[in-house]
Design a binder for these strands. Structure first.
Length: 257
DNA sequence: ATGCCGACCCTGGGTCGA
């Protein structure tokens, strides 16, 4: 089963790109982030015309996540537990052919001297707790994909010195990402490309970042042991980023045998 | 250079993303 993650940066603005990508890449499951629309405005008809059903957790203007699937989506759960006050639509999970998947839009956290950084760290703590207390104990295959807004290592950013104090690279952020791995999760791309460096999933629109290949690797697929045992492939698909009116992210996909 | 681009809001400029 091919499972992809893609931060689309507005599903409305990106619909032609997303439809074209679904037709070309043919993922069984697509985990989308940054829909920037409410549930009622999600283009479900166009998506379903390509054979995908959708589970959506939308929000006006900001955030918004979805699971698209060629196979039935069961037991959909919206929102990350742990803070009833948190109304940002950044998390949705569901089960497809026995695999529990989640689409994650982790907070950016910048600027680090404002309230957004502690919100990011608290959100990551909640995610670690949810994985540890609810997801892993089921011993189900899990694929947690999304825009983690996290650069795992200095090989994953074009200029690590310039980014050292960014929320995406800060030790406090990286420590919480490592906490997920320490629970027993496998980062799919790194597992299959242990010696690769400077392979990115996001390039800023400005200053010719894409043309100069100055990006960051922040879109990840995390697998439980039961899913990692079946990991057959994982790649970054740079094709969509090079097209007209692209998202600033590009999809990352894995194949679970 | 420190939001240069591109999206959102609902009217032309403010806010946000990473």
């Amino acid at each position: 089963m091919k499972i992809a993650t893609f931060n689309v940066n507005s599903i409305k603005a990106r619909l032609p790109r997303v439809l074209e990508w679904l037709e070309e890449a043919q993922p069984d499951v697509a985990l989308l982030q940054e829909l920037k629309c409410q549930d009622a405005d999600f283009p479900a008809l166009e998506i379903s015309s390509l054979g995908y059903e959708a589970a959506v957790h939308g929000q006006k203007t900001y955030n918004g996540v979805a699971i698209l699937s060629k196979h039935p989506i069961e037991d959909v759960f919206r929102g990350l537990p742990g803070d009833p006050e948190d109304e940002q639509a950044r998390y949705i999970e569901g089960t497809i052919r026995g695999i529990r998947v989640a689409s994650i839009y982790l907070p950016n956290g910048n600027p680090v001297d404002g309230p957004k950084f502690p919100y990011k760290l608290a959100w990551m703590d909640r995610l670690v707790a949810h994985i540890r207390d609810t997801l892993l104990p089921t011993e189900q295959p899990l694929v947690l994909g999304g825009d983690y807004n996290l650069v795992p290592g200095d090989d994953d950013v074009y200029d690590p010195a310039k980014w050292a104090d960014d929320a995406l690279c800060k030790p406090e952020s990286r420590a919480r990402f490592r906490a997920m791995l320490n629970l027993g999760l496998t980062e799919a791309w790194k597992a299959l490309h242990p010696n690769a460096a400077h392979q990115y999933s996001y390039w800023d629109y400005v200053q010719g970042r894409w043309q100069k290949d100055e990006g960051v690797r922040i879109d990840h697929l995390l697998l439980s042991p039961q899913a990692a045992d079946r990991l057959a492939a994982c790649e970054i698909d740079k094709t969509p980023r090079g097209k007209e009116k692209p998202s600033d992210h590009t999809p990352v996909w894995c194949e679970i045998a």
